[in-house]
């Protein structure tokens, strides 16, 4: 391979960059062959392939660091006045770092969004099921309470009715009156029992349920806030 072939191959590899950049590079390497005072083969051997040369030119145009460069950690520690002078190099390095970081985070965000979208039917149905179960349990307890209150009222009413009936029967049929009054006492006892159960339910069970629901909602709310932050 001689220099013409090398330069031709290089021009071909750089066909997609701007004409002025390409001409600049070709002029440089034309001069390079001319000034080297070596055989074309020797110069090409030193330069490596036209591909390597084209890649190095392309890397500079893409504003990337060439493979030889190592990112310098202590650049960030420089004082501001020094930064003014040596800004050009650091700007490039920080831009490169910024690009790679933002690229990664965008990818992560996209993945999280996709995961959330795919999982949303499952999450929504499970959450709905749990809320439904909770509402059901609360309604059942409330129902029991209402039933107990209703029993107390019914037994109380029955006791009063039996007492009145017993008093009326007392003079006509004392035996029937005793049965009625006995039934009255039984109803009164059951009424008191139900009243006691209502009081106990209101004191111990209901506050516990309300506290539990309150805690659950506050946890859900805090969880959402954390996600927002």
């Amino acid at each position: 391979m001689n220099r013409e072939q090398f330069l031709e191959e290089l021009a071909g590899l750089l066909s997609d960059i701007s004409a002025s950049e390409r001409e600049e590079a070709l002029q440089y390497y034309r001069d390079y062959f001319e000034d080297a005072n070596l055989s074309d083969e020797e110069v090409i051997r030193q330069l490596g392939s036209a591909k390597t040369v084209a890649e190095s030119i392309r890397a500079e145009l893409a504003d990337k660091e060439i493979a030889l460069y190592q990112p310098q950690k202590d650049d960030q520690e420089k004082t501001t006045e020094k930064e003014d002078i040596i800004s050009s190099v650091e700007e490039k390095q920080s831009e490169n770092q910024g690009q790679s970081k933002s690229g990664m985070s965008t990818g992560t965000i996209v993945l999280i969004v996709i995961l959330a979208l795919l999982a949303s039917p499952v999450i929504v149905s499970i959450a709905g099921g749990l809320i439904g179960l909770l509402v059901g349990v609360a309604a059942a307890i409330f129902g029991i309470l209402v039933a107990v209150v209703a029993c107390a009222v019914a037994f109380g009413a029955a006791a009063i009715a039996l007492f009145v009936a017993g008093l009326v029967k007392l003079f006509l049929s004392p035996v029937a009156a005793l049965l009625l009054l006995g039934s009255c006492m039984l109803c009164l006892g059951l009424c008191l029992l139900c009243a006691l159960a209502t009081v106990q339910l209101c004191i111990h069970v209901l506050p516990g349920i309300f506290k539990g629901i309150g805690r659950l909602f506050s946890k859900l709310f805090q969880g959402k806030e954390k996600v927002r932050i």
């Binding site: 440089y28 390497y29 330069l47 490596g48 390597t52 040369v53 030119i57 500079e60 060439i66 030889l68």
Partner: peptide, 17 residues
Amino acid sequence: ELSESTLYPVLRRLQKN
């Protein structure tokens, strides 16, 4: 130590700066 092809991009960058 650096490869011969490394210098052109450096010169070009310094020129652009």
